[in-house]
Design a protein around this nucleic acid. Structure first.
Length: 465
RNA sequence: GGGGCUAUAGCCAAGUGGUAAGGCAAGGGACUGCAACUCCCUCAGCGCCGGUUCAAAUCCGGCUAGCCCCUCCA
């Protein structure tokens, strides 16, 4: 399996540290507001990565954090729907808000068929672990205390700018608003590990520590959770490209200073979803949630399909035209599969199966080329191989694509006999050229949510979603 | 100001040196009582300029345009 590694800026063979399982850490959401579909794109990419690894015969142990500390107070949110969020904030504690949006996040992921990571942990539940790490960083002089806060000294990192490719003397520090520049730091790029004294005086979540009552820095949580649940050697660390600097750079610095050796071999980043105004974010106004798409009648899986059509490392431009197009294609694919399912002709052929299985697997192994993976699906649908073989291939592909390609149909016996009876009557009517009656029967079925189609192999029916 | 990414038909998109995958849309046709579905056919020379090569969308140089990061951010 080949993957693009931000650390080396190359596509390279993926070799995990040990043969036991792939240790995968994925930065989770900050749960002070709804996730937008751009956020969700990253989680779709991570889901596909995890499933592709499994499809390529790896075992995966994956951890995700819930960032419920560090961003809760002093949020000058200008997003949509101030009414409901405002109400929430007036009547609930930060903890309740975190739980609320956390639950909302996983609901969205479930709708997108994103598998929940094996381990999901709240940042706020591991304060002791952060304190342990910070204590050691102070002991080995990688960190220092200044003005009531503990800072990491980036000159102690082996190559602080390796991941980001930036150059130290060319970074702009605090130019936007010099008032916020922190003069307690030795180096402007040093970052906080523990705050007891910061500009965020109204931080609501605070804990006691050896350095006074306060709260952890924004980067220590990922290091803390990854080390605790995945050990000293991490194979894959994921996140959105915006995390490369400073978040992931800081994680590397503090983790390796703590461990005394190289920590994570592969850094894999998902590109952003943009809209016509640029990056989708609260401030740009283009804040689209999955729920909003559903309200407009879109199937969340059509959005997943849209994401799979492109590559995770390419910026994707969102528009309703593009989504509409994905809906049409997705429904056509489902329709074709439905017909194959209703006519399971021929015998299963292992050679045909192996051939396409291999092509599909290779597409995924090629830095998650989901676009080609989908093309492989189209090719299977078009090919003259047996329908039984096609069905097995589709089932297999859907292990990764997770598009509910094989739809479950809940026809109970009563409904089934009703349909069969109605279709029989309609056939008779058609044979008698009583088209008024046959159309009437068709309309009656439609009223009951049954859509029928005449094909050369007979009439097929399906439930209207 | 610095760092990075992208540029392929109306739209999405694959391709990483050997005469441009695939999908959507569109046009034509078959099928059909009608619908819908399905099937078949058609449809680009790869942002611009220059270079390397027998051969370039693919490599090199320059340019242009757009986006992202450097600040919480997926």
């Amino acid at each position: 399996m080949n993957l693009y590694n931000t650390l080396t800026k190359k596509i390279e063979p993926f070799i995990p540290h040990d043969n036991e399982s792939v240790k995968m850490y994925t930065c989770g959401p900050t749960v002070y507001y709804f996730a937008h579909i751009g956020n969700l794109r990253t989680y779709i990419f991570e889901d596909v990565l995890e499933k592709s690894l499994i499809y390529n015969d790896f075992k995966v142990k994956r951890v995700m954090n819930i960032t419920d500390v560090g961003h809760m107070a002093n949020d000058s949110d200008t997003g949509e729907d101030k009414m409901s969020t405002g109400a929430l904030r007036e009547h609930k504690t930060v903890w309740e808000i975190a739980d609320f949006y956390s639950e909302s996040f996983f609901k969205d992921n479930a709708k997108l068929n994103n598998k929940r990571p094996e381990i999901v942990e709240k940042a706020s539940a591991h304060i002791d672990d952060y304190i342990k790490i910070v204590t050691k960083l102070l002991e080995n002089k990688s960190a220092y205390i200044a003005d009531g806060n503990v800072y990491f000294d980036i000159t102690k990192a082996s190559d602080y700018y390796a991941l980001s490719g930036k150059k130290a003397d060319e970074l702009k520090i605090g130019v936007r608003d010099t008032v916020t520049e922190d003069f307690a730091k030795k180096n402007p790029a040093d970052f906080g590990l523990w705050f007891t004294n910061s500009k965020f005086l109204n931080q609501l979540m605070q804990w006691d520590s050896p350095w006074g009552r306060g709260y952890p820095g924004w980067h220590i949580e990922c290091t803390g959770l990854a080390l605790k649940y995945l050990g000293e050697y991490l194979d894959i660390h994921c996140g959105g490209v915006d995390n490369i600097f400073p978040h992931h750079s800081n994680e590397i610095a503090q983790s390796e200073a703590y461990l005394g050796h190289k920590w994570c071999g592969y850094w894999i980043h998902g590109e952003h979803l943009n809209d016509i105004n640029g990056k989708m974010s609260k401030s740009s106004g283009g804040f689209l949630t999955l729920s909003l798409l559903e309200e407009k009648g879109y199937n969340p899986l059509a959005y997943r399909f849209l994401c799979l059509q492109s590559h995770y490392r390419k910026q994707l431009m969102f528009s309703y035209d593009v989504l509409d197009s994905a809906v049409v294609t997705y429904n056509k694919v489902l329709g074709k599969i439905k017909m194959i399912k209703d006519n399971p002709n021929g015998d299963f052929n292992q050679l045909d199966f192996d051939k396409y299985h291999q092509i599909f697997k290779e597409a995924l192994a090629d830095d998650l080329n989901t676009s080609n993976a989908l093309t492989t699906l189209y090719n299977v649908l078009k090919d003259s191989i047996s329908n039984k073989t096609k069905l097995e291939l589709i089932k297999s592909f859907d292990l990764v694509l997770s598009l509910n390609l094989i739809q479950e149909e809940n026809f109970n016996d009563e409904l089934l006999s009703y349909i069969k009876d109605a279709l029989k009557k309609r056939d008779i009517a058609k044979n008698n050229k009583d088209y008024a009656l046959s159309d009437q029967i068709r309309d009656q079925l439609k009223d009951k949510g049954i859509l029928i189609k005449d094909t050369k192999d007979g009439t097929i029916y399906e439930l209207i979603k």
